[in-house]
């Protein structure tokens, strides 16, 4: 491409970039306005930042509670996903045993069962076992949902670890569990980070599983909380925008610092068979 052509292309791309950012900027701007300001002029940039909306959304609307719920559930789910996923990935990639191939294919097949397909029977299973509307129930649902993906990526990552490293550790007298703890966990760190961030985003961003598993109001996760805002604050747009902003900021921060790892995780599935 010639130099001039590149600049010609860059202009619509810049406009598209603007269109990508603008909705967020607009929402943040609205969150900082008073209701009166919003009704009078919704577009102008506020000259004074009104943090009261954020305070209201955080406090009396209950976003603080939802935020804590989300944090707890996501942390526990991601921990379990990484633990179980790396254990299974190690076994499937570096420990030959009878049936390992069948299990890997089974895991791959489970990847293609979307939650919507199993949500009716799953909610019945959860109700029968008394796990519905409990934190362990939601955590278990998230682990079940994202485990096939986690196992798949950890297995492909561990396949790239030279077999000699594992063999050498075994010769040194390590048990299989010792190899897992002393070799596979430390060596898997980049993959654990990428997969862990993606799993955290999936769990944090989910709404359908949380809606189904946690019916009571004080068990709401942050995303379910945002959907409930919509009904409650239709005529108070700045408070609504503040709730949305509170839910978006953690993701924005993770994105700013860990963009590379997120992209690595997304593309790992596309390049590795």
């Amino acid at each position: 491409m010639r130099r001039l052509a590149k600049w010609v292309v860059a202009v619509p791309m810049a406009i598209l970039a603007l269109a990508t950012i603008y909705p967020l900027v607009f929402t943040a701007n609205v969150a900082m306005k008073t209701r009166r300001e919003y009704v009078l002029d919704r577009f102008s940039l506020t000259d004074t930042l009104h943090w009261d909306n954020i305070v209201t959304a955080w406090g009396s609307v209950g976003m603080a509670r939802y935020f804590a719920n989300s944090l707890l559930v996501v942390a526990a789910s991601v921990f379990l996903l990484l633990l179980l996923g790396s254990m299974a990935g190690f076994a499937l990639s570096r420990l030959p045993f009878r049936g390992s191939k069948a299990l890997f294919i089974g895991c791959l097949a489970a990847l293609f069962i979307p939650f919507q397909v199993i949500m009716v029977p799953l909610s019945r299973v959860m109700a029968d076992t008394g796990l519905i509307d409990t934190y362990p129930g939601l955590i278990l649902a998230y682990v079940a949902q994202f485990l096939p993906f986690t196992v798949f990526l950890m297995t492909s990552y561990y396949r790239s670890v030279p077999k000699e490293i594992v063999d050498a550790a075994r010769i040194d007298g390590n048990t299989v569990y010792g190899v897992y703890r002393r070799i596979m966990v430390p060596i898997g760190r980049p993959a654990l980070l990428s997969v862990g961030i993606l799993d955290a985003l999936f769990c944090w961003n989910d709404v359908i599983i949380a809606l189904l598993m946690m019916p009571s109001a004080d068990h709401r996760t942050l995303m379910v909380g945002v959907t409930s805002l919509r009904g409650q604050y239709t005529d108070n747009v700045p408070t609504f925008a503040s709730g949305v902003l509170i839910a978006a900021v953690p993701v924005l921060l993770v994105y700013l610092f860990l963009q590379r790892q997120i992209a690595d995780g997304v593309t790992a599935g596309s390049t590795k068979g």
């Binding site: 299974a88 799953l122 299973v125 196992v151």
Partner: peptide
């Protein structure tokens, strides 16, 4: 090593 993952996937994805 693989049992917990298999159990969860079978009980909460394949069985449902």
């Amino acid at each position: 090593l693989i049992a917990p993952a298999v159990l969860i996937i079978v009980a909460l994805r394949l069985y449902p």
